[in-house]
Every structure is written in C-alpha cells, then in structure tokens.
Amino acid sequence: MLEGKFEESSLMKKVVDAIKDSVKLCNFNCTEHGVTVQAVDDSRVLLISLLIGEASFEEYRCDRNITLGIDLESFNKIIKNGNSSDFLTLIAEDSPDNVLIIFEDKKKDRVSEYSLKLMDLDSDFLQIDDMEFDATITMPSSEFAKITRDLKTLSESLQIIVTKENVKFSSDGDFGTGNVVLKGFVDMDKPDESIKIDMARPINLTFGAKYIADIVKGTSLSESVTIKLADKSPALFEYKLPSGFLRFYLAPKFDE
C-alpha cells in the first residue's frame, strides 16, 4: 500500500505543471525510497526524469513497489482543486485501479477527497548511463526562463555557446537576431542569484526553442537551474527539489 502525505500540495501542483505539457501519460513508480517518473515526449526529443524523494513527504509509506499509470491532464484537474497550503495525501492499494487524492485544510476542518482512475501504460524505459559533460552552468531559473521566452520570439532554434568566460544564448530568425551573454559571478548575499560556469571544453549546441520553453515550466520548483552540456549529445537541465529533482534531457539539433 502507498500512503504519502505532503506538508503542502504546492509541490505536486508545481511538478504536474512542469511536466504536463511535455508528456500526457506517465507511470508514477512508487518504492520505499519515494516516487519516480521517467517519460519521453511523443517526438522522442525530450525526456523527463523525476524523483520525489521520501524526505519530500511529511509521512511516507510504500511497502511494495506500486505503479500508478496517470493521465496528467486529468490529474491536473484534480490537483488544482486543492489550496497550495493544504496537506495533500495520495493513497493507493497494492494493485490499484485508482488513486485517492485527499486535501486537508490546516485551519478549518475541511477534507476534500478525490479518486482518479489509473491507466495501464506501456512505457519504454530508456537507459541513461552516467553521462560525461563538457560544460556545466548554474544560474537563476527565472533568468533562464526569461532568456528562453525572449529569444524564442525570434527563432524556433536556440543556440547555447559556452566559452571559458561566458555563456551565450543566441537566436537567428527571419526578421532578426538576438543574443544574451552572461558572465559567471558570485552573489555572496543571495547565492541563488549567482551564475557559475564550469567548462572543460567549449560548447556550441543548438536546441529546439519550443522544447526549452517546455523545460522552463519547471522554474517554480527551484530558484536555480543547472544546465549540463556535452558536444553532440543531449543536454541535461536540472531543477532540484527539496529531496529529489526534475531533470529534462533534450536532444540537440544537427547540421544536415
């Protein structure tokens, strides 16, 4: 049996918001260590890897591994009904047909209970070996979201170029071009505002802007985002959770 209680429903709301536009159906795999999701978008360009660690829950119990096949659009309709500050509890039997979603208001004696029908989903699980990256950038997630939104208005591609001194985000469209250059710096007072650039080899990669626009929907999960890049390889974009992470792997574009 699974019984997981969150101190606030806001974490699950943000997680669902962050992934629902990339994938529609996915298995939530529940183990004694927490909840994981791995899912690939229909075009097989973007992969989502989520870990909500046991410590993200106020109370957590999962005696046997349980798979919850969830339609995220339906789940989102239910999860939106809770207030962000409500306790949120997920309950499922060992071989469940549905999952119970319970919201409890902390001040009033109001309990809202919903049941979501589960689906039997096939999922190709992809093997992601430990990848070696040539460059790692950590920056404020809101700044990365703004750069993405701004440059996406010019072109359907977004180029990321990393040199020793800086990282350049660039787009080249029909009516014009744009770029944003960031240098590494340390903000002692607000560490989350810092920009850290680690580069072993220079990088020049191009990605589909629409996919990065989906990735930045994770912005509300974390103050900062880490971007890991390697030549001619998928990039990794990571938002850290209080215990766990939301990672996106995005395949690059190549010259034909």
């Binding site: 075009s43 992809l126 093997q127």
Partner: peptide
C-alpha cells in the same frame, strides 16, 4: 538548416 535529433540515437531501451 538544422535537423532535430532523437533521444533514441543516444539512449538505449532497457
């Protein structure tokens, strides 16, 4: 013109 790569070219099925 650049062509979008698939993740399947990089990651194997388990």
């Amino acid at each position: 013109k650049k062509k979008q790569a698939s993740l399947m070219a990089f990651f194997g099925k388990k």
